[in-house]
Structure formats: C-alpha cells, structure tokens
Design a protein around this nucleic acid. Structure first.
Length: 584
DNA sequence: CCGGGAGGCGCG
DNA sequence: AAAGCGCGCCTCCCGG
C-alpha cells in the first residue's frame, strides 16, 4: 500500500492512495497541513509506504507537526539510482530524456538566518515539487507517472530484490537525515568557547588574531628573519622558508615535519591553531549552534558512491580537538558506535573470500591477518589492505600487496577486476546495484586520441594515466559504495529498534501553536550523528544499555541483509559516554 | 568587485 | 608532491 503525497504552494497537500502495483485506487484528496498531519498519524500504523518527491523538503513539515513516518519512497533519490544502475539499463526510465527529476537538488534554507530558530524556519514544504499552483503556469503533476516508471524499472530488472532493498535503504536514510537535522547534535557552546580560549587565548574581533596566534606569528617572523611574512599566505611563507635555507617545495605540514629548524615547531602549531580558528572557531559556533544543538544539513546520496555528504557546517569533518563540546543532556548519555575495519570486511564478503572473512572473525581484522602469518605487523596489514582497496602501486603498500594477493586471492581479484573495468571505461556496481558513473567526454576523447594512428607518446602516456586514475576510482567505488549500503541498513535497523524500544510513548496531538518543540526527540532515544561507519545515539541514561544492544544487533542484521549467510562478522566498538571526546 | 582555482587540512 | 579512494570548506590570489 502506497500513499502518494504531492505538495502545493498554497499549503495544501494532495494525497492519493495507490495499490501495491502503484495504480491509483481513486482515493484522492486535498488536505490542509493539519489534516495531512492527522492522516500521517492515523495511517502510518498500517503497512504504508509514503511516496513523495523529496524527503528533505516535505518531512520537516511532518517532524515539526510532532509526527514521524516509518517508511517512505523518495522519488528524487530513487530516480538517480535507477537512472544510473546497470541493473535497470534497459528500462524506459533509464532511456528517457533527462527531466526535472534529473535536476540537482535545490539548496535548502539558510540555517541560522536572521534570528530565526530552526523550528520557526520555513524548511520549504511549500512548492517542494513545484506542483499544485491552482492557476496558470503550474508544472505538470508527474509524480505518479514517475513512481510508476520506477516500479516498472524495478520489476523488469535482473535482480529486483537487491534494488528494492537499496531503494528502501536510501529512502529510510533520507528520513533519518531529516530527523537528525531536526533533533540536532547536543553541543555545549560554553564548553566549545572554553576549549577555544584555552587553545587560542580570549576571543577577539573577527579579522584579528587571538593572542596565541599573534605570539606564534611573531616567533615565526623572528625565526625566519623576515619581519613581514604572513604565515597565512602559502606563497609568502614558501619564499621565506626558501630564503632561510629550507629546501621545501610546499608548505604542507607533512613536508615541514621532516625538517630540522627552529621555525618548524611554532609554524606547525600556528597552522594547527589557525585551522581550528578558521574552521571551528567562534564564528562557526555562532553560525551553526542554536540552543546548544548543531543542526547540519545531511545530503543522502550526496557522494557518487552512495555515501552521504553535508552542506554547511562541515559536519563530517568535526576535528577531534573540539569533540569535547559534544556532551549529552543531564540525565542522558551517548551511545557511540563505530564499525571496526568496515571496508575490508565488506570486501571479504563481496568477494566471498572465506579466508579473509575468517581472519576477521571475533577479532580485529588486521590482527587476524597478522595471526595468519601474511604480514608481520598490524600496521603492515592495514596499509596493505588500504592499498588493495585504493589501488596503491608503490611504496610500502605496493610492496606488501603480493603477499596479500597470495593469502586472499578472491578478494584481490575482485578489486583488480573492478580496476580493469574502470580502465576500459566500463561501469561497476555495488552489492545492491548502485552503479558508477561513466567517465566524462574528455576522458573518452583522450582514450580515442591515444589509439589513433598519429598519437604521440605524450598522448599515450596521458591516456594511460587517466585510465589508471579511473580504474582506481572504480576499484574503490564497489567497496566504498557497498560499505555505504551496509551503513544505511545498519542505521535503518537501529532506527527500527529504537522505535520499538519507545513505542508505548504514543503522542496525542500537534505541537502547540507558536511553541517550538522537538517532540519525541525530547523524551526518547534517537540518532543524532552519522559519519560513514559511525553513529551516535542520544538516549536517556537508563536506556543506554538497551540502546547499545540494539546498535550491536543491528550491525549483524545489516550484514545478513547484504550478504545473507556468508560468514562475515561486523563487530563494533560501542561505548556509553557523556562526551563524544571520551569515545576513542 | 566577484568567481573560481590552488593550496591546504579536517574527516572516513 | 603523498604512495592510494571519497568528500567540504577555509584563505589566498589571480583573472575577468
């Protein structure tokens, strides 16, 4: 049973009931926002999947109305997958000309605009799919046709089960992303401020240097014998370093670390601190922290591999330096969990390499590789595995690869096959059927030119280099993308478990007019952060152990969803803490 | 004045 | 110029 929801600029929703084949049943109503919210509460208990154009646009309306949905089908996200998947390459959908469903997603509203709080902002419910203008100029209401085309593409593909799981996972990911943005990550501005003050000195006006940075800049100038050099300017700094007799080609920290000179220590500290100030300083805090919550905008499917991206606030790059500001509410705790060596385990399962899977059973996978006698140290095991998944050719990683290939031929053959496909310009696909993009026309042109009669050695070298670049991309795509699918399934299972844990707390009505509320996010355990292979759940402290069990069991369930009975473990490091800084 | 590329660094 | 993938976002700097 599907319920198709389309929106309108006049705050009315069109709601059409569809049967399990996606055909209209005739139930077709126009509802106001309160009526729509009432319908959501009434019908979400059934086996209903809500179908809509864009979760990021419509679901905040539901959340602000203190309601939630269990399942949805996000037409925009699913369209992208089905258009690109090799599994649906012959479908009508994939071969139709580009439409508005192929347009990039519009930027959402500014988060911290002019004193508005997140809960007062218009998150774009109106006109989220551009339909429903009651006058001239309305765009065609093609959401139903699009949904039916998607169902057809799934039904007629070679492996519908995998794609159905992928689309369900992608869509529930969109729900979770909206819920996490809505709930926010607990963030203590006072602690953040004192961390900054301890590192940088007292806060100063924007545009001037805090005391610690000013002192370090003075030392750098003195040590370089250059009273005017600006340490924020790489070209100036590079010249000054060279004048001081330091033969570096860049000012990167990893290169400076190799040098022995008095200026290096203050310079590296300057770089570290100026980065903290620029990326996560007071200005960042004022822009992104509202009422002790960080509300990043997550973008499910924002990376071609299926990983999420974020927009604004740099939520996926929170430096370890400031994680001490992430503190649970009084009486609450965080359950912080992180999948151990996720990508190599995904590779073992993808390739059905039982030896590699066995090396990770009940233990650190890299330690297991050492115990199997493949390499001598854990560091070697790790760098060799990363090299296999990223396509290392030289250095220590390159030297260790043959030993890995001897011990785990199936796993290494899979990555090699993916790389060769990319080098030819072919498409590769993840476990559940997300396919890599084709290389651009420039790439194709360069390959073609290199095989023509008049090709120069420079043409050939260039084409070969680009082919290898693309091969490294496709090599990594299957692993990173399949790991992203595991993570989506993991989060979906966590969300399901958390819902069951707090099921009795059925709420009764809409938010009080004019009041801001986070609804059940104020009383029940909920996801507040996700970072590729890591989640944070904010929970009443009394439920933390239950939550930890749910999170752990969800990892096993995700593995079974992707890989059935294949004997691969997905162990977690899972801790209950008050502060994110204590997680590892 | 603005936009975009480069350099650089944070995260997985 | 990071060996080897994927991102976002800061400042500086240059060209239009």
């Amino acid at each position: 049973m599907y319920i198709l929801v389309t929106g309108s600029t006049s705050g009315r929703f069109r709601v059409q009931e569809l049967d399990s084949a996606g055909a209209a049943t005739g139930l077709d109503r126009r509802l106001t926002t309160p009526e729509f919210l009432a319908l959501v509460r009434e019908r979400d208990h059934d086996v209903v999947r809500w179908v809509w154009a864009d979760t990021a646009r419509i679901y905040p309306v539901v959340l602000r109305g203190n309601a939630r949905v269990a399942r949805c089908h996000d037409l925009r996200l699913c369209h992208v997958i089905l258009r690109n998947s090799a599994l649906t390459g012959g479908s009508v959908l994939a071969n139709a000309p580009a439409s508005r469903w192929d347009a990039p997603t519009a930027a959402a509203a500014e988060p911290a605009a002019a004193g508005a709080t997140l809960f007062e902002m218009d998150l774009g419910a109106a006109e989220y799919d551009g339909v429903g203008h009651d006058g001239a100029g309305a765009l065609p209401d093609d959401a139903l046709a699009e949904f039916q085309a998607q169902l057809m593409a799934i039904r007629t593909c070679s492996d519908p089960g995998r794609l159905r799981l992928l689309l369900a996972a992608e869509s529930v990911g969109a729900l979770i992303a909206a819920e996490m943005q809505f709930a926010g990550l607990p963030w203590r501005s006072a602690i953040h401020d004192s961390l900054l003050t301890a590192e940088l000195g007292p806060r100063v006006a924007a545009g001037s240097r805090p005391a610690r940075l000013e002192e370090l800049a003075a030392r750098i100038r003195a040590d370089l014998g250059d009273p005017s050099v600006n340490p924020d300017s790489p070209p100036e700094l590079l010249k000054a370093l060279n004048r001081a007799g330091l033969g570096v080609a860049s000012t990167r920290a990893w290169e400076l670390e190799k040098l022995d000179h008095p200026v290096i220590e203050p310079l590296l500290r300057y770089k570290k601190l100026s980065r903290l100030l620029a990326a996560n300083g007071w200005y960042w805090m004022e822009s992104w922290i509202i009422n002790d919550r960080f509300h990043p905008e997550y973008l499910p499917g924002g990376v071609v591999t299926g990983r999420w991206a974020t927009r604004g606030g740099g939520a996926l790059q929170l430096p370890k330096q400031i994680r001490g500001a992430v503190v649970a509410d009084p009486g609450w705790s965080f359950v912080v969990a992180d999948a151990a060596q996720l990508e190599p385990r995904i590779l073992a399962a993808l390739s059905a390499d039982t030896a590699m899977a066995a090396a990770g059973r009940g233990t650190d996978l890299y330690a297991g590789i050492v115990a199997s006698g493949v390499v001598e140290t854990r560091a070697h095991a790790k760098v060799a595995m990363l090299g296999a998944m990223y396509g290392a050719t030289s250095g220590e990683s390159g030297r260790l690869l043959p030993r890995l290939a001897r011990a785990y031929p199936r796993a290494l053959a899979l990555t090699e096959t993916a790389a060769r496909a990319g080098e030819r310009g072919d498409v590769v696909s993840t476990r559940l059927g997300r396919s890599s993009p084709r290389p651009g026309s420039g790439w194709q042109d360069d390959q073609a030119r290199a095989s023509e009669a008049g090709a120069t050695t420079a043409d050939e070298r260039r084409a070969r280099s680009q082919a290898r670049d693309w091969g490294r991309f496709t090599r990594n795509f299957i692993v990173q993308g399949s790991a992203a699918e595991w993570a989506l399934c993991w989060m979906a299972e966590i969300r399901k478990g958390l819902t069951a844990l707090s099921a009795p707390a059925e709420d009764t009505g809409a938010a009080v007019q004019g009041r801001t509320t986070r609804g059940e996010f104020e009383v029940a355990p909920h996801l507040v952060f996700f970072l590729h292979d890591e989640v944070i759940v904010h929970t009443p402290a009394a439920l933390a152990d239950d939550v930890a069990r749910i999170v752990t069991e969800a990892a096993g369930a995700a593995g079974r969803l992707l890989f059935g009975d294949f004997p691969v473990d997905f162990p977690l490091t899972c801790v209950v803490v008050d502060s994110y800084a204590d997680a590892k």
